[in-house]
Design a protein around this nucleic acid. Structure first.
Lengths: 150, 150
DNA sequence: CCAATCTCCATGCGATCGCATGAATATATA
DNA sequence: TATATATTCATGCGATCGCATGGAGATTGG
């Protein structure tokens, strides 16, 4: 059995803690501004980038890396708020395509200043751009492990 | 208003994604082995390090960085499982001191092999020890921001 | 010593999570 | 073609989360 080194264990703990601290700061900032949570931004941004092509549920799942059932319900909430539209997929009778609406674009745009400030405060204030690039580079293989992992 | 640079935003996203991917892998491994979740390990380990001195609820909160109400309920669960004991604090009538029990030590020890393997697979497999140290170093100020933050 | 304030902790509440499952359609295989 | 398998997505369920609140004991300042 392979035991992780002290360095790896420290990195693990740092990763767990840092994300929680940073995410909570951002969620709190959004909430205090009367805006929807982080997850909405994440999904809306992917949908906005996808444009008129839209995205399938499972594509969103792979993009933002949350469980399928949670994508389904996140889209429920976004739809109820008028931020997205579900349309049946022309190619696949099981599926559907999700499109962002004007309301969705407006909501995302309204979130951005608060969200951006929170990112800056939680992460940006502590990293040079160079170090941010290094950090992202070190984390990339951990993220991509999902593909191969299971 | 300060807008985060592209590099900072990328680092933010990487941090969010990497932690989620890694944590979910670990949670899944523990669950599949019929073991308690990550949070239990975290708390039990702090309590084991604290030894016979025990820890106050708010100390646990600061160590493992979860909200106070969640510490309270985590301790409820650990107590129900016989893993910890609550004793009234001799110094502070409001408070209590939490101690790990033999059962708690046994549980933590049973979790470690699975947890360790998950850390190794999720993080260790992708980082040299040197890079792990760099990663932890880059994340540290983000974690410590909690203190000063709010 | 009393009142105002603060700290410590538990709990109600609504929201979200992951898992397991199931229904419907698509795809592969015999 | 007929059947087995796989994919797509929604939903029930129990567990956990963050927030807001409140009670009880400490602490501080007059």
């Amino acid at each position: 059995m392979v035991i992780p080194s002290k360095q790896i264990t420290d990195a693990w703990i740092s990763l767990m803690r840092a994300q929680q601290v940073a995410l909570r700061q951002a969620e709190r900032a959004l909430r205090h501004a009367g805006l929807p949570p982080y997850g909405w931004y994440d999904a809306l941004w992917e949908l906005e980038k996808a444009g008129e092509i839209g995205l399938r549920i499972h594509q969103i799942e792979r993009q933002i890396l949350i469980a399928q059932s949670n994508v389904s319900r996140l889209i429920d909430r976004l739809e109820a708020a008028g931020c997205v539209e579900r349309k049946p997929s022309p190619d696949d009778g099981r599926g559907q395509v999700i499109f962002i609406t004007d309301q969705g674009r407006t909501t995302r745009a309204a979130m951005w200043p608060i969200y951006a400030a929170a990112i800056q405060e939680a992460v940006g204030a502590h990293l040079t751009d160079g170090n941010a690039t290094i950090l992202a580079g070190l984390l990339r293989p951990i993220i991509e492990n999902r593909e191969t992992g299971l």
